[in-house]
Design a protein around this nucleic acid. Structure first.
Length: 560
RNA sequence: GUCCCAGUAGCUCAGCUGGAUAGAGCAACGGACUUCUAAUCCGUAGGUCGGGGGUUCGAAUCCCUCCUGGGACACCA
């Protein structure tokens, strides 16, 4: 990475180590191991461009007060290739470094040069990672929880890609097992009801309106010709038709949401190819199963769970858990070095035994990472929108897209960290005002585009070669440049922490700094040199806003 | 009962792999458009970081305990 901040930071770290060594050599410090210390950009800019806690962490073993240690280190400190202007000892023993005021200015040219690649880092080193998300049952519509999962998963995948991982997005289709049987029964009931037969929906059937529509579509195609055939045959045909339609609908909703998968993986495939059976055999062979009451159990307790889990029911059919183990084993067999699952928090009980099963099969449980996300609360008119699956009263992804638009929806679903409940305020997401963070950010981008096109119209910058960035000396400009420079670090952090909300927040802050600058100074001014420098600055801001928004799946319009 | 998540400004939330005076947006209050987009900006006010103990140079952050809210504990998925 040739990022200015990283280079400078590493330079200071090395120089600090050398300084401590020199102090030890000249007996100013006792022989000691250098503990872990940090060199960070302080939150307060009054604390310099970099600050280190090295004196404080050395204090104990050096048997000297932190500020004395700091003095010793500073007196031995030497650095040549980084423009440090001042070093001071502050607070309880921090050493603060102040760099030349325009040390970050070159980042503007880096950004313009790298364009949409600016911010790309390589902490992933090409590691093969799979992100699996949404994977909702293909028996219904996508709801708010699925929507949050989609936004989070897609954004995490994008960020990991940008951070140098080799990422694949996957959707697991639960097209087998109990709930499909159940689905088939419900479809059959609706089918028969349509032709006037007096059958009623089972208590645990699918009561949603959407499957009536699906059955109507089926009837439009096939009419009543399955009225008289054997029930098993009828259900089979119905469920084939319905699954195809449902999955196509889900795929379309997700595409409308800006989410595109690399792979759709069928659970049925696992059963048909004997992968589930083979996996259970393998667990048996390894001694992690036993039989009890006619069922085959997995010894989850050996892996820290509080109870064991059934793999094959007494009736001979494998459980969802068994299929899921086979599925995850298959992921590793496909060559993924790291696997990320995004699940609703209501599945958290599943995590421990899934990891246990992976360990039982000889995989590292750390290679399977489960991100749990908390629930979504919809708020409209200051009231929580009550939803219930039983009555079919749910707000779907398509409906929310229709109502608030894709950009607002994408942004709102990732603006909070996954492990906090998300309050989704529909009125706010819809409002085209300054309260709405999405518009705030997009507006900054549009404003810049407007300035750039105006400058282009004037045409007097054509024969200028390189901007003189030293002309950018206002505090608002320096703050803006610093924010731009920090973007690659922000990407690294967001990737490591699987935290898209950090990028969302970053974009908002960057837009804020731009708006402040915009209101305080004009970009296009009579001084052509200064205009040219400011145009370079705002062009860089535009690029970074675009790149950041891209990572969270939000567009950056040129005009609004 | 066991486990997971949360509790930070009036509201919604950052900060949590320990750092300096705890932040942002909204709401409230007071200002700024003869200007490249006012969908903007500037300023003011707002806090026992759920309570209590501990660890240490230093705790919103780590440990213990208690309280509150949400969720999970099926031969469902």
């Amino acid at each position: 990475m040739n990022n200015i901040i990283e280079l400078s930071r590493n330079g200071i770290i090395e120089a600090l180590k050398t300084s401590v060594q020199k102090a030890i050599d000249s007996k100013m410090l006792p022989m000691i191991e250098l503990p872990v210390f940090t060199v960070e950009i302080p939150r307060e800019k009054e604390h310099g461009d970099f600050a280190t806690n090295i004196a404080m962490v050395l204090s104990k073993s050096a048997k000297k007060p932190p500020r004395d240690v700091a003095k010793t280190i500073v007196s031995n400190f030497e650095i040549k290739d980084i423009p440090i202007e001042n070093i001071e000892i502050a607070g309880p023993g921090f050493i603060n470094f102040y760099l030349k005021w325009d040390w970050l200015h070159p980042v503007i040219e880096d950004i313009i040069e790298q364009g949409n690649d600016y911010g790309r880092v390589n902490i992933g080193k090409g590691k093969k990672v799979q992100v699996e998300f949404v994977s909702a049952n293909p028996t219904g519509l996508l709801h708010m929880g699925n929507a949050r999962g989609a936004a989070l998963g897609d954004s995490i995948a994008s960020i990991l890609q940008f951070a140098g991982f080799d990422v694949e997005r996957e959707y697991y289709i639960n097209d087998a097992g109990n709930q499909i049987e159940n689905f088939a029964k419900s479809l059959e009931v609706r089918y028969l009801q349509h032709f006037g037969e007096n059958v009623s929906m089972p208590e645990d059937g699918y009561h949603g309106e959407d499957i009536i529509q699906t059955v109507n579509n089926f009837i439009a195609e096939c009419g009543d010709k399955y009225l008289k055939v054997d029930s098993i045959e009828r259900r089979k045909i119905l469920v084939e038709f319905a699954l195809k339609e449902k999955i196509a609908n889900i795929e379309k909703s997700l595409l409308d949401f800006g989410v595109k998968y690399d792979n759709w993986f069928s659970e049925r495939h696992l059963h048909e190819k004997g992968i589930v059976d083979a996996t259970i055999e393998e667990l048996k062979k390894r001694g992690y199963t036993y039989e009890k009451e006619g069922a085959v159990w997995f010894k989850a307790r050996e892996f820290g769970d509080d109870k064991d889990e059934v793999l094959i029911r007494a009736n001979g059919s494998p459980t969802y858990f068994a299929a899921d183990i086979a599925y995850h084993k298959n992921k590793f067999e496909r060559g993924f070095e790291h696997v990320i699952d995004i699940w609703g928090a209501d599945h958290h009980g599943h995590v421990k035994r899934m990891k246990g099963a992976m360990r039982a099969l000889g995989y590292s449980p750390d290679s399977l990472e489960v991100i749990l996300m908390q629930l979504v609360r919809l708020v409209r008119g200051g009231e929580i929108v009550r939803m219930s699956k039983r009555t079919g009263n749910v707000v779907t992804l398509s409906e929310i897209l229709e109502e608030v638009g894709r950009d607002a929806a994408r942004y709102f679903f990732v603006m909070r960290s996954a492990d906090t409940h998300l309050e989704f305020d529909i009125d706010l997401a819809k409002s085209q005002s300054n309260d709405n963070p999405v518009f705030y950010i997009q507006y900054a981008h549009a404003r810049i585009c407007s300035i750039l096109s105006q400058a282009a119209d004037e045409g007097k910058y054509k024969n200028l070669d390189k901007p003189n960035l030293a002309l950018l000396k206002e505090q608002a400009e320096i703050d803006l440049i610093k924010k731009l420079a920090v973007f690659p670090m922000e990407v690294s952090l967001a990737a490591e922490m699987r935290a898209p909300h950090r990028i969302a927040k970053y974009a908002h802050e960057l837009a804020g700094l731009f708006h402040s600058f915009y209101n305080a100074y004009r970009v296009i001014v009579p001084d052509v040199e200064l205009s040219f420098a400011r145009l370079a600055l705002v062009r860089a801001v535009k690029t970074v806003i675009f790149n950041a928004l891209k990572l969270v799946g939000v567009s950056a319009p040129e005009r609004m």
